[in-house]
Design a protein around this nucleic acid. Sequence first.
DNA 1: GCCCGTTTCTTGACTCGTTCCAGGAAAGGG
DNA 2: CCCTTTCCTGGAACGAGTCAAGAAACGGGC
Lengths: 143, 143
Amino acid sequence: MPDAAALERALRAAGLRVTRPRLAVLDAVHAHPHVDTETLIGAARARVGAVSHQAVYDVLRVLTDSGLVRRIQPQGSVARYEARVGDNHHHLVCRSCGAIVDVDCATGVAPCLTPSDDGGFVIDEAEVVYWGRCPTCAPSPAP
Amino acid sequence: MPDAAALERALRAAGLRVTRPRLAVLDAVHAHPHVDTETLIGAARARVGAVSHQAVYDVLRVLTDSGLVRRIQPQGSVARYEARVGDNHHHLVCRSCGAIVDVDCATGVAPCLTPSDDGGFVIDEAEVVYWGRCPTCAPSPAP
DNA sequence: GCCCGTTTCTTGACTCGTTCCAGGAAAGGG
DNA sequence: CCCTTTCCTGGAACGAGTCAAGAAACGGGC
């Protein structure tokens, strides 16, 4: 988890102004990967005192557009954010409790896979989501 | 595209009652792969006259639960449905216009991939989404 | 063929996450 | 130091999807 100076550098490198809400949200995403916006609002407030609802939404959009955080949204889930970007990793999602876990990409850089027939598409990324049941949910029967 | 009798057989085989809305929705999904619920409501109504909003939502849920249709939902898109099930194929999605195209799975049956580290998860499916730009959108600059 | 109990459909209101809007205050940075 | 961007308060809109209660229809059994 990067320190405040590193986060500030990251913001500047992306051409963004450095503000307290942005540092707080960025830090919160690093500290709590895969959580929803609601939780991030709470985590950001715990860091900086008071941050408004839409400041966080706004910051998250700016950060995702800049590529500093990544937005993920498996089926049936609300938007979640993570700070691991650029390493082309994938995700394990539990069908039962919704837990998300990172997995390193087995093959390397994006796009780590190429389809048998690309249909004329110019492909830049292959997103892989592994669906199953986490160690906690696996023993119990499906709902 | 199967005829009405085949659709009816499919419903019965899944242990479901055969109703006009169900036949209409199932036929509509076969006729219009990868479309959203709104469009399916329209297509179903074109077939059977009047079908309510949530009859379609309800039917779609029952059909997905039974495995007769598959629900897909790329990021930034609403829920979409398709009738190709059981062949573990994947999708190409255009970042620009949202078009979705099927691609056959290169490896075979599900899960066609296994992660380097499964984190203790019991994995039953690997969902692969290739992101890029379709032949129509590829030449024009990103928005 | 007809009946009846269960499933399914209809109608309409409602939730939830998210976005947008406006006006004014604050703070970053050239 | 001043201009611009960003943030705040507060509200209101939005669309996809859901809930609830009663009406209709499916289909197994007679």
